[in-house]
Design a protein around this nucleic acid. Structure first.
Lengths: 206, 206
DNA sequence: CACAGATATGGACGCTGCGTTCTTTTCGTG
DNA sequence: CACGAAAAGAACGCAGCGTCCATATCTGTG
């Protein structure tokens, strides 16, 4: 009883026959096909086999360029989905963080990116290649942006002197990923706002 | 280049030959073998094939009792690793939360449970059976305990009246899971303490 | 105490996907 | 224009899946 719903039209480009082609052209077509597959079926149906069939590139070629399906998926994701990389700094850190949280929630709930992101993080756990790529090209640089903004706010006196910016990142984004990966509770805009409010002002009675 | 290190002695029980055996005995042996395999190799090498070889039970039998490898892994984990289910309530919520965070960090860093937990959450993302079992038997009840304790603290005046307990859970445990699943930063006792302190007192300058 | 029914085992099937190797074809560059 | 780089194609063996069937044997009931 194999789940055999075919959501992606195989063989989107006509068979090309053997022979050399520009490497960049091949890579580009493969990444496009991989991104498409990723968005429609997630990591579950994401195999070299399928990407090969859709892109028209041979499996041999895929193996030449990407060491594992995880590595390919990661690159395709970064190229297709993860465009934005910015962190506003208006001088009001609470507002900026709220904006970032809301943007994240929107991305994750309104598009297929949420499912893909969850799948990628899931596959990371058993795919070191993917884990390395993800951390290097995605999570680390984003963390760094947030940490910089938080430390700037601390340095200009908006936040306590002893604030640990790295921990703040986990308390905000980590909380969102928690609801994304283990959906006991929904990931909503309200949640995002509460998140920032509770962290900024504390939960203890004053 | 398949990773083929055999860390578990196959066939721990002698072949038994065909024929009926008490269902509970079989289930028990299978779960023991599955737990052992899970601890030594994680979800990566966790297959019906291997569990069958180690436990001595036939693959057919495994399929009869568990619908997917995820379901089997989940049950084995809950049975082998996840014994404790308690939440102290000393009347000092900050201390209690810190204690819980430290216990979690210890469990996850000192034992193989961390790896297994990460693997399970990873596999959940593409295995609905596992996701359902995990949430029902593990995450939901634990969340509930924490929420109850936090709301009790709120009701007796330790915390602000408008505290959202569910969100607090994500801000604490979610932050830990974040570092477990995406290890850009280490999961340490210091982190656990900072987590609680920053949330309880807030990060804004007073 | 014997038998019928329940249940585990062993083995085989076809399938998908992996990762590798070798050969063939084609294109671009020098 | 010839050569070499690079892709396609085909085939291999391997692992694991999920399912079937026949067979063996235990267990509970009459």
């Amino acid at each position: 009883m194999t789940a055999s719903v075919i959501g992606v039209t195989e063989q989107r480009t006509r068979p090309r026959g053997r022979g050399r082609r520009p490497a960049d052209e091949v890579r580009s077509e493969v990444l496009a096909a991989a991104g498409e597959l990723l968005l429609t079926e997630g990591m579950a149906g994401f195999t070299f086999e399928r990407v090969s069939a859709i892109s028209g590139a041979s499996r041999t070629t895929l193996h030449k360029w990407w060491p594992s399906r995880g590595a390919l998926a990661a690159e395709a994701y970064f190229r297709t989905v993860a465009g934005t990389l910015a962190f506003p700094d208006t001088g009001d850190i609470a507002a900026d963080l709220t904006e970032q949280m809301l943007a994240f929630v929107r991305l994750v709930t309104d598009t297929a990116a949420g499912r893909v992101l969850a799948d990628l993080i899931g596959s990371m756990q058993t795919d070191p290649e993917l884990a390395a790529a993800y951390r290097e090209h995605y999570s680390a640089p984003r963390r760094a942006l947030a940490v910089t903004a938080i430390e700037a706010a601390r340095d200009r006196g908006e936040l306590r002197d002893d604030v640990d910016a790295e921990t703040v990142v986990d308390q905000l984004w980590g909380a969102c990923y928690h609801r994304l990966l283990i959906p006991d509770q929904p990931l909503t805009a309200d949640f995002a706002r509460t998140l920032v409010a509770q962290l900024v002002h504390g939960i203890a009675r004053r």
